[in-house]
Amino acid sequence: NQASVVANQLIPINTALTLVMMRSEVVTPVGIPAEDIPRLVSMQVSRAVPLGTTLMPDMVKGYA
């Protein structure tokens, strides 16, 4: 089972991601792979992401 990136806190719209905002977790459906966490740092979210939400490619500007 592949771990995905999950929000560790509420991430407001247009916030630049930092390591403390993200954790890896095995979830369904699968989201952005956990190994991409270093690449996500400083990228902005395109919408508010609630705590515990799996990050999907369309939620991060410039990821897809």
Rank of each mutant, 00 (worst) to 15 (best):
T54L: 05
D36I: 08
A34T: 12
V60I: 10
A7F: 02
Y63H: 04
T18R: 07
A3S: 15
Q44M: 10
Y63E: 03
A3F: 11
V60C: 02
E25S: 09
P38N: 13
L10G: 12
G52H: 12
E35F: 10
A3N: 15
M43V: 04
S42V: 03
G52K: 04
S46V: 14
D58G: 09
P50N: 14
N1L: 14
M59P: 02
N1E: 15
S46W: 13
S4T: 05
P33F: 13
D58W: 12
K61I: 09
I13V: 10
I37A: 09
V41H: 05
L51I: 15
A16R: 07
S24Q: 10
V60F: 05
L40S: 00
T15W: 08
S46I: 15
V26H: 07
P38M: 14
A16N: 08
L40K: 00
V60S: 01
A7R: 00
A64E: 09
P12Y: 07
R39C: 13
T15S: 08
V41L: 11
T15Q: 06
A34C: 09
M59V: 06
S24N: 10
Y63W: 14
L19W: 12
P12C: 06
R23W: 03
N8E: 08
S46A: 15
I37M: 12
V30E: 15
G62L: 08
R39N: 13
Q44P: 08
A16G: 05
R47N: 15
P12N: 08
N8Y: 05
P33Q: 07
V45H: 00
I11M: 04
V45I: 07
E35A: 11
L10A: 11
E25C: 06
L19Q: 06
P57H: 15
I13G: 12
T28S: 13
A7I: 10
R47P: 03
D36H: 14
P33H: 14
N14E: 09
E35L: 10
T53A: 14
V6I: 15
A3I: 09
V30Y: 14
M59R: 02
L55E: 02
M21F: 04
E25L: 05
V60D: 02
K61F: 07
L40M: 09
A64D: 13
L51V: 15
M56I: 10
T28D: 15
M56V: 08
E25P: 00
M22D: 01
G31P: 01
A34F: 07
S24Y: 09
